[in-house]
Design a protein around this nucleic acid. Structure first.
Lengths: 228, 228
DNA sequence: GACGTTTTAGACAATGGTGTCTAATTTTAC
DNA sequence: GTAAAATTAGACACCATTGTCTAAAACGTC
């Protein structure tokens, strides 16, 4: 998926620094503009301006608009996936207090993967351009959200085997956990509103409480908590 | 919000029939094209072709592209809202079998409001153009999804007062119910895939089972159901 | 300071879209 | 059948955008 016209000829290695900076600047600006305007609505001129770069430079790095778009999407997807698995690795495998630890995990997840700039970009782009570039987003789905489902399911399975949860279908439980975490935020994210820390925390707390009510073993972990 | 240049002069009342048909045809075609291409990507020519109408006719009815767009959005929103409250009115207030009845309700809800063509259109358009027309979508949010939350909360409150559920925060419960119903479908809808009836049913069943595990009163309604 | 490379501003043709206009044709009401 | 209204195809000016090209300037390395 590399650009076919790599500048190989006589370039000394260190001269890539300036280029690299420009490339990143363009990628960043293009992501912002594509996200705000969509593919058709975004113009190369606007991207170039936002990147503080001449239009020709954009064309030098990415031969054409389509090319730039896929490069941006791949870049954002890579970042988002990396972040996703970073957060996944903070899952409370040996929880001190299951409820509190899950709430913390849920907050990290929503803050870093959902209310994120990258998350917003991907939701918007998958919606608006997903059908035009099926393979592009399909591979992301498999490597990103697809994987998170099975990974989270495996983590819940461990907690379940430890007797901390009572789950019959781990995949369903994982999807439901994610859905519950989003329950209070969905409407906001749909309109591009970034939730405050309090909202994030309250959403996570509501989600985890209901999740545990459904999946905590019989009368072990739920001392009949009342709403504050 | 009516077109400022209504053709009032000498028109007899009945001549609106042909016009009306064209108007509807244009609205329908425009919805499809705007949904597929986004606002910037949609061209009037393409809409006119899809509506089997000349370009000039489109301009006769809706002075400009912006106008046509808002007309389409309002039309779809009205239909979607009407459908939403129709489905809401089928909520099982006096359930025979709470679980089965809630599953039926959830299936109706997701089929008619989420997997719908209008639902797809609105999700896509709110995402891609929501920030460009804030007032347009904001009023929809208040009258549609906003209202459904409180309406559903009220319905759950009644079931709760009847002792069929044990809910402390009805609004949260309503949002969680909706989120759970979507849990298994979200990924599909994000990619424009329409789920089969079996998937719809299974998603609703999973959702309701977890919802009842969390909110059914102590040891009344859950005879330890196992996965099939 | 000299060299090769990259960047820049600007001009440029080609394309495609919007919105207007006109003149011919069709539909509709009576 | 007639007259008014609506529809149509086509041409049109206008503008924005894409992608190319050129010559000058800036940059980095030696």
């Amino acid at each position: 998926m590399k650009a076919p016209n790599d500048p190989v000829p006589k370039m000394s290695v260190h001269s890539q620094r300036g280029q690299c900076a420009k490339r990143l600047s363009i990628l960043e600006a293009a992501a912002e503009v594509f996200c705000r305007q969509g593919f058709a609505g975004a113009s190369i001129d606007e991207i170039a301006s936002a990147a503080c770069v001449s239009r020709q430079t954009v064309y030098n790095h990415y031969r054409e608009k389509d090319n730039l778009f896929t490069a941006v999407v791949e870049d954002v997807m890579d970042r988002a996936n990396a972040m996703l698995f970073t957060i996944l690795s903070t899952f409370p495998e040996k929880p001190d207090n299951l409820e509190d630890d899950l709430v913390g995990f849920a907050v990290r997840l929503s803050r870093s993967c959902i209310c994120n700039q990258d998350g917003k970009f991907l939701r918007k782009l998958v919606q608006s351009e997903g059908e035009r570039y099926p393979h592009l987003f399909e591979s992301w789905r498999q490597h990103g959200p697809g994987k998170i489902g099975t990974a989270l399911a495996a983590l819940f399975a461990r907690l379940s085997h430890k007797g901390l949860l009572e789950i019959d279908d781990f995949d369903v439980a994982a999807r439901q956990f994610l859905a519950l975490v989003n329950a209070d935020l969905q409407m906001g994210t749909l309109f591009g509103v970034t939730p405050t820390d309090e909202e994030l925390d309250s959403a996570a707390r509501n989600a985890v409480r209901t999740f545990l009510r459904a999946y905590a073993p019989a009368q072990a972990n739920t001392p009949a908590v009342k709403t504050a």
